[in-house]
Amino acid sequence: MQAAVTEHRAEVAVLHLRGELDADTAGQLHATLAGLLERPVPRIVVDLTGLKFCDSVGLSAFITSKEVISARGGWLSFAGANPFLSQLLETVGLGRYFAIFPEVEDAIAAAQM
């Protein structure tokens, strides 16, 4: 898995993920998220456009991070999930726990409201 962060208006960080997120690559995700969680009020959009696969270890990293983010008054949302990831997020019930947007721009625009 590859991870890159870009900054956008309203102090929103976009975490772009590519490849496969699984037990072998979850440590990299944890390290990247840890840096973003240092912000006073973390606002993170996870761009799933380039992510081809995610297992339960990857999902648990997002859930753990969301707890920290929520405690600080921030938020974490997803954008650009392919059909496999969209179905996975809904099947495990994360569609009720995270905001999911079709495009990164939609998630950033929602931050402005």
Rank of each mutant, 00 (worst) to 15 (best):
A107I: 00
L17Y: 01
S60M: 14
A109S: 15
E7Q: 13
C54W: 03
L15G: 03
I63Y: 00
G80N: 07
A23L: 14
G95V: 06
L29H: 03
K52N: 14
V68C: 05
L37Q: 10
F53K: 04
A26L: 11
F98N: 02
I63S: 02
V12H: 02
V41A: 04
L33M: 12
A34E: 11
N82V: 00
E103V: 11
V92R: 03
F62Y: 06
F62I: 04
S56E: 02
L37M: 09
K66C: 12
V104N: 01
D22G: 08
E7C: 02
A3L: 09
E7A: 09
I100R: 01
A3G: 11
D55S: 05
F98I: 11
H30V: 12
T6K: 10
E67R: 14
T32V: 14
P102A: 08
K66E: 07
F53H: 14
L37D: 07
Q87M: 13
T32C: 07
P83Q: 01
A13L: 05
S77D: 15
E20T: 08
G27P: 07
P102D: 13
A81Y: 11
G50R: 03
A107G: 01
F78L: 08
E20F: 07
V68I: 15
L85D: 01
K52S: 15
A109E: 15
V57L: 13
D106Q: 15
L85M: 04
L48F: 06
E11T: 09
H8E: 06
R18C: 07
T64G: 12
A107M: 00
Q2M: 15
L88Y: 06
D47C: 06
D22L: 04
P83Y: 00
R18P: 06
W75D: 02
R18A: 14
T64A: 15
A4K: 11
F98V: 09
L59R: 05
D47N: 10
A110C: 13
A81D: 06
F98R: 08
R39K: 14
V41W: 04
S56C: 07
Q112V: 12
V92G: 00
V57P: 08
L37K: 04
T25P: 03
V68D: 15
E11N: 10
V104G: 00
F78N: 01
E67V: 13
V14Q: 03
A10Y: 15
S65N: 03
D55R: 01
